[in-house]
């Protein structure tokens, strides 16, 4: 167990949860950037459009051009692209098999459960390259562990 930690301040975390509540009942998604380290510290959030064609209540996709912009923004501003967030509308904040198969090592995958339009729970995960399984990451909000 590596005990990964990712840290948000309350305002940034609220930006994410508000974005995902606004997208309910569809899945919403976006990027977060900041400083690599132990813990990872998020300093910026980049909400993007769910570009998935078809059922956005069960799937999300980020357009290639949005990914390129996020990488370029990180480079320009001396930040690291740390991860991706998305919502599970009316489902638990547990990664699906589809999430795992699509995941890349390195990134933090933050999942928010949105129940009836309101934020309910958040978890974060990193894919382990050797096992191709997710390992849960501890979330800190204003330096306090999110439970």
């Amino acid at each position: 167990m590596a005990n990964f930690i990712i840290e948000f301040n309350r305002d940034l975390f609220n930006t994410i949860s508000q974005h995902l509540e606004d997208n309910f009942p569809n899945e919403g998604c976006g990027f977060f950037l900041g400083k690599e380290g132990t813990p990872r510290v998020v300093t910026e959030v980049l909400p993007v459009v769910n570009s998935k064609e078809g059922d956005q209540r069960r799937r999300f996709e980020i357009a290639a051009i949005d990914y390129i912009k996020a990488e370029q923004y990180a480079l320009t501003n001396g930040l690291n692209l740390l991860g991706i967030y998305h919502s599970h509308p009316n489902h638990p904040a547990i990664p699906s098999e589809h999430d795992r198969k699509q995941a890349l090592p390195y990134f933090s995958y933050l999942i928010l459960s949105i129940q009836n339009g309101k934020f309910a729970k958040a978890t974060s995960w990193r894919l382990q390259e050797t096992t191709q399984q997710f390992e849960e990451e501890i979330i800190h909000i204003n330096k306090l562990k999110l439970t």
Partner: peptide, 10 residues
Amino acid sequence: ISIVPAIAGG
């Protein structure tokens, strides 16, 4: 040139 991995999930 940008190398772009697929970013998706559900």
